[in-house]
Amino acid sequence: RADKQHVLDMLFSAFEKHQYYNLKDLVDITKQPVVYLKEILKEIGVQNVKGIHKNTWELKPEYR
Rank of each mutant, 00 (worst) to 15 (best):
L59D: 01
Q19T: 13
G45C: 15
T30L: 03
E16K: 12
H6P: 08
L8F: 05
I44Q: 01
E62C: 07
V34Q: 15
F15R: 01
N22V: 10
K31V: 03
L41C: 02
R1M: 06
M10Q: 09
V27L: 11
M10V: 09
Q19R: 15
L8E: 08
N55D: 14
I44A: 02
N48H: 15
V7M: 08
L59G: 02
D3S: 10
T56R: 11
R1E: 15
A2D: 06
L59A: 03
L8Y: 07
K42A: 11
L37V: 14
K31H: 02
V49C: 08
T56I: 06
L59N: 02
H53Y: 07
K24V: 08
Y36P: 06
V46R: 10
K38E: 12
L37S: 00
L8D: 00
S13Y: 09
T30F: 02
Y20C: 10
Y21D: 01
K42R: 12
K54V: 08
E39V: 04
D9F: 03
F12L: 13
L11E: 00
G51D: 11
S13Q: 15
L37H: 01
N22D: 06
V49N: 08
I52P: 13
G51Q: 05
E16P: 01
K60G: 03
H18D: 07
D25G: 04
V49D: 12
A14E: 04
T56D: 13
G45D: 01
Y20F: 06
V34F: 08
K17A: 07
R64M: 09
W57G: 02
Q19I: 05
I29H: 07
A2K: 15
N22R: 13
I29E: 06
I52F: 15
W57H: 02
P61V: 05
V27E: 09
W57Y: 07
K38G: 07
L8T: 08
Q5R: 10
V46A: 09
Y36E: 12
H18W: 03
V34E: 13
L41P: 00
P33A: 02
W57M: 04
R1F: 15
Q5M: 12
L8A: 07
G45T: 05
L11W: 00
R1G: 15
P33G: 05
K31I: 00
Q19A: 14
I44F: 05
E58T: 13
Q19D: 07
